[in-house]
Amino acid sequence: MSAAYLLDVGNVSKVFRLQKRTVRAVHRASLRVREGESVGIVGESGSGKSTLGRCAVGLLRPDEGAVRFLGTDLTRLSNKQMRAQRRHMQVVFQNPSTALNQRMTVGRNILDPLLIHRVGTRMQRGVRVFELMEQVGLSPEYANAFPFELSGGQQQRVMIARALALDPKLLLCDEVLSALDVSVQAQILALLLDLRRDRGLSMLFISHNLPAVEVLSDVIAVMYLGEILEMGRTEDLLANPRHPYTRVLFDSVLDIPESKAARKALRPLPGEMPSPYEIPNGCVFHTRCPVAQDVCRREVPQARTLDDDRQVACHYV
């Protein structure tokens, strides 16, 4: 637990109660982000990626575990202290058309965080808004436009500018690409890469778009039914996925080969993810795992750290 970690999420669990049923959204997930590092979280829909991300930036209070941001445990902060911390961690949401206040102009939307945290003088704030717009590649004439007059990609740029306004140390990108067209996805991805390079921003990048996560992340965590099954440095993980789920997940990605002959068979993941209302006993993945044995149905595999900085939760690795 050295101070080298910007964010240290330790054994975080979150359960949602919906009337009489409970949903185990995140179960004992641990994650660390170093300064300047980008951590990607991948998994299918409903695997708890967003919940974990929201716990990590204090938007949700986990039921168990600690979230340490620069040494302070966010889970123990009062609302007031938490608000003060928020300027260091900003969020870019999935759908810009709902996450931006549509009644405010673009400029006002970007200005809002500066007003809330009382940054600078009026003049300085105005200058800052235009600086930010330039940084994210928005023409200054859009400052007086309303978000709904912009395209999806431009709106996403507004949201990124708004998130950057306070010079955060950590940026949570929650499915920032999924609401955009493919060509626009590439532009936003390039923008995020630039920002990371120029500002040394730390990121939590949540996505089910594997290639995007590969490009943007130093470390990838693979989630399934609320648990992190495998985590490791991007190159290592891609080269040598250890957990059976990671392997089938990577196999199910559509990639376009150079020639027809090189095309490998696309292997979709068999079956469906079990309902989060009824978590299987033992290993959460055993119902779909190609190598599952009796022990997997009985015992929960503990996450182990392997030699190459890899963490895997599987009996057979």
């Binding site: 928020r86 949401f93 965080p113």
Partner: peptide, 15 residues
């Protein structure tokens, strides 16, 4: 339930 409410919380607007 709107997204921008969560967005406002995320940038530290008072309840």
């Amino acid at each position: 339930q709107e997204g921008y409410i969560l967005g406002a919380r995320a940038r530290g607007v008072r309840k």
